[in-house]
Amino acid sequence: MDALDSAGEEVSLELPLLELVRTRASQINGCAYCVDAHSRDAQDGGESERRLFALPAWREAPFFTARERAALELTEAVTQLNISPVSDEVYAGAAAQFTEVELAELIWTITIINAWNRVAATARPWPIG
Rank of each mutant, 00 (worst) to 15 (best):
P56L: 07
V90K: 09
A92F: 02
F63Y: 14
A77L: 08
I107P: 06
R40A: 10
T79A: 09
A57F: 14
R67C: 09
V86A: 02
I110V: 14
S48H: 13
A37Q: 07
V86N: 03
L81T: 15
E47D: 08
L72M: 05
N29D: 02
S26K: 06
A42E: 00
E49T: 15
F98D: 02
R40G: 07
A37P: 05
T79W: 00
N82E: 02
S48E: 04
D41E: 08
L55R: 09
I107S: 10
I83S: 11
E105Y: 12
I28M: 00
C31P: 01
Q27H: 07
A115Q: 11
G30S: 00
L74W: 07
C31Q: 01
A42M: 04
Q97C: 12
F64Y: 15
F63W: 14
T23L: 02
A54Q: 13
A66T: 12
H38R: 12
A115R: 11
E60Q: 15
V101N: 04
Q97P: 09
V101M: 05
L52R: 07
G93H: 07
L72R: 09
E68M: 11
A66N: 10
G46P: 06
E76A: 09
V101Q: 13
A115E: 00
S48M: 03
E76H: 14
T65P: 10
A25V: 13
V35Q: 01
V35Y: 00
A71D: 01
W108V: 09
F64P: 12
G30K: 00
A57M: 13
E68K: 15
A61H: 13
V90P: 07
R69A: 03
Q97G: 08
V90I: 15
Q80Y: 01
R59V: 02
G93T: 10
R69G: 03
R69C: 01
G45P: 08
F63M: 06
V86C: 05
A25G: 01
S48T: 15
V35A: 01
V90E: 00
A37F: 12
G93V: 08
F53V: 12
E60D: 12
R50Y: 07
A77T: 15
Y33A: 08
T109L: 06
G30L: 00
L52K: 08
E89C: 10
N29S: 03
E100C: 02
A94Y: 05
Q43D: 02
G46E: 05
A71V: 13
A66V: 07
T65F: 04
V86R: 07
G45H: 09
D88E: 11
E105D: 07
Q97H: 10
L72F: 09
P85T: 13
I107A: 13
P85G: 11
L52Y: 08
S39T: 15
N114R: 04
R24Y: 05
Q97F: 06
D44C: 10
I110Q: 00
